[in-house]
């Protein structure tokens, strides 16, 4: 049991990085960026190939980050300069990335067994096993990312990006180059998602061409769980709630698997979770207004 929880928390912390990336595209910019599915695999592939080629795992993280930025840049350019609707531009980038990822990996998966990862020095330094070292590294990385983003979105550029997602007409009327702010947002988002992929790949000791499939839905599920549990009070809490949401999502998954749900149904389960999260607020509101409309409802009290 303890092992399952450690596994879920460590995986949750690594997926939290991805969830924060999804938060930037989905909640800040208001776009469902499908590029995520490709860039998470891209990150894992680049980092794994770096390590397999004898490079430092930390260099692998950096390269993954840069490649994720490039993927975000491609999608941003397709959407803003070529005027392709954001959902389609994301699907196009994701599809193109599938080939790119295959080129990077050269085969369907790369094993990292018995190779150094970013976790191994931490494990030997602190004298803990791999599961706990993933948690330690994950916590530090999440804390650094939250700190950096909290600062960044408070700056002039960060405010301009938030304004672009909130009201692009107003943003342009205030002299904001909305093409540029969208691109910066997507670059940032995919950098984090690729970084997350690199961290996940190293924690499970392999990179797999299919690991990105359904990633965006997992990210959204985590995002909604965080939002429901912690609200939207302020930006710091929102960012932290992404981490909590990602961990809780993993705990829920571990729990339902333990209860006997077949692993094959995981993606179906996740998709249904997202559908519920998207529709429940509307249903709740409709029910409330219906109750109010009835005589003797709360309004009459």
């Amino acid at each position: 049991m303890q092992e399952i929880i450690i596994g879920a928390v460590s995986l949750g912390l690594l997926w939290a990085v991805m969830t924060i990336g999804v938060y930037i595209s989905y909640s800040v910019l208001g776009m469902a960026d499908m590029t995520a599915e490709g860039s998470i695999t891209l990150g894992a592939a680049v980092a794994a190939q770096t390590i397999a080629g004898g490079g430092s795992p930390y260099l692998g993280l950096l390269l993954a980050l840069l490649c994720g930025m490039a993927a975000g840049l491609c999608n941003g350019l397709l959407h803003t300069k070529l005027k392709i609707p954001s959902l389609l531009s994301g699907i196009l980038t994701m599809t193109a990335l599938f080939s790119v990822n295959l080129h990077v990996m050269g085969k369907a998966n790369i094993s990292l067994l018995r190779m150094p990862t970013v976790y191994s020095p931490v494990a030997s330094l602190l004298g803990i096993d791999k599961g706990l070292s993933v948690i330690a590294v994950g916590l530090v990385i999440c804390a650094v990312i939250i700190g950096l983003l909290y600062w960044f979105f408070g700056t002039e550029i960060g405010s301009a990006i938030r304004a672009t997602g909130n009201n692009p007409h107003m943003a342009r009327a205030q002299g904001i180059n909305t093409d540029r702010t969208i691109i910066i947002g997507l670059v940032l988002s995919n950098a984090l998602i690729a970084l997350s992929g690199a961290l996940i790949g190293q924690s499970q000791n392999y990179a797999d061409l299919q690991m990105g499939t359904g990633a965006i839905v997992i990210g959204l599920a985590s995002l909604f769980i965080g939002e429901v549990l912690f609200g939207k009070r302020n930006f710091f809490i929102r960012l932290s709630s992404m981490v909590a949401g990602a961990i809780i999502y993993r705990l829920i998954i571990a729990f339902v698997l333990k209860l006997g749900m077949p692993a094959d149904d995981l993606k179906l389960f996740t998709a249904i979770t997202v559908v519920l999260a998207l529709t429940l607020p509307g249903i709740k509101k409709a029910a409330q207004s219906r109750r109010r409309a009835l005589p003797g409802g709360p309004q009459d009290a």
Partner: peptide, 14 residues
Amino acid sequence: LARRRGRPRGLSWG
């Protein structure tokens, strides 16, 4: 945001 209309936006506080 309005105060910075027509001015370059950088990494100083919003």
